[in-house]
Design a binder for these strands. Structure first.
Lengths: 233, 233
DNA sequence: CGGACGTTTCGGCGCCCGCCGAACCGTGTC
DNA sequence: GACACGGTTCGGCGGGCGCCGAAACGTCCG
């Protein structure tokens, strides 16, 4: 994969829209993505094939549907890195992308509260969780974040465990900080962030609302967050 | 900076050639880059302006020359990340970019031996330095690399010091591993890697050869590497 | 079996953008 | 002051590529 080839794939508005939509970590059908990006199904089909051929996306066919998702966490962080590259000063013209409709505005505020970032938590909830994990000594942040011994036993008590390859060379980093670009603060990614979100979803502490990346914290979730991390929202 | 805009800048062969050339960490003039990428000076001028406007490059004018360099380490890592994205299997056609001329071949072998990677060491030398730093306990690698206490005092004895902002939020990471794509192994980047290379250059342990990224280890350098790190080449 | 639907392939249109050469400007040199 | 040289601006050319609509294919359902 050459630099120009990869960059060229992300340089097109349609393909970029696909990728950012898929940042919610879920699998979308080709048709959903086509409607989302407002292009003809034929166009979506072509562009998806290219993204798949390049190894950015993975596909899974089920009957007459073609499900598509990001190929892995590396792809997600790559896209996040590109998308969060600091904008030089002179773009002060239109600071926010213009709320547009009311529907759009409420969606954005819901996502600011709590949302997914590929496979972990983001938004104010994600930042609060990180702060709590730091305060309780589950995660240290000396020259880059790391899971502490206390963090490991906390995770074990929770009944969750990290994938075996996490942290080993070639494997996924155990904990990564991910710049949250609504909050302009960090939240927790990496294998730890992922397993945290996974359990929260499994135990119905959070649930997805709408078709986007927004999340809602359930009453059970509020209780769990308070008892396990001391987080109050 | 939108994702598509940034990616679009790197999607063009000419602009990409500029960026990868600038990965040597030095400042090039517009004309040098034009010749390097084999385009007319006028073309180079236009493209450089765009890269600068986007904040990827920084310029410095001296007399009738326009010097240009990468805007910072973040840009370098961004480009490295994109360039080192794993290529899917079916590109097995032409594995290496065809040596072409003899001149080209000797340049490549020199760069494989020792070269710069933006502002730190790479190639076999870079990998050897990392291995030595790990073996001597200067750097640990538990869930991501970190500078140890011993590493800090080693650096102090050397008479070198890290920039004050290194490791703090918003600052540069103290030590980063950077996948070396000739060696397919990691070498040391980050503030530590940079200060290491800086002192090596200041004390003439290594010197640049040719106009590219290749380095030569001086006799003084061989001695220093052996005494300080136990590295023999 | 027939119709609806999601997806794919193909041909063709239109636009964007990278490229160059020519003219021009400012700087350094003889 | 004349000339050389690096860089920039501008107009115009050409190719690549994203888009669509039409037609075809496969799957699911009645």
């Amino acid at each position: 994969m050459s630099l120009t080839h990869l960059a060229g794939l992300l340089a097109d508005p349609t393909r970029a829209a696909f990728c950012t939509a898929l940042l919610d970590g879920r699998a979308w059908t080709a048709g959903e993505l086509a409607r989302h990006a407002r292009v003809a199904p034929s166009t979506a089909s072509e562009q998806l094939s290219r993204l798949i051929a390049a190894g950015l996306l993975a596909e899974e066919r089920q009957g007459r549907h073609r499900y598509v998702r990001l190929a892995g966490p590396e792809v997600a962080t790559l896209i996040e890195d590109l998308a969060s590259f600091p904008v030089p000063a002179e773009s002060a013209g239109r600071s926010s992308p213009a709320p547009g409709s009311l529907r759009e505005a409420t969606r954005m505020s819901a996502e600011a509260r709590a949302r997914t970032c590929y496979d972990h938590l983001a938004g104010r909830l994600g930042v609060a969780v990180r702060d709590a994990a730091l305060a309780r000594g589950l995660v240290a942040d000396e020259d880059g974040p790391a899971l502490t011994g206390r963090g490991r036993s906390w995770l074990a008590e929770l009944g969750a465990e990290l994938p075996a390859r996490a942290g080993r060379p070639g494997g996924r980093p155990v904990v990564r900080t991910c710049l949250d670009w609504t909050e302009r603060r960090s939240h927790l990614g990496g294998a730890f962030g992922a397993v945290l979100f996974r359990t929260a979803l499994d135990r119905s502490w959070v649930e997805r609302i709408g078709t986007g990346r927004a999340l809602r914290v359930t009453p059970d979730g509020e209780r769990a967050l308070r008892d396990l991390l001391g987080v109050t929202l």
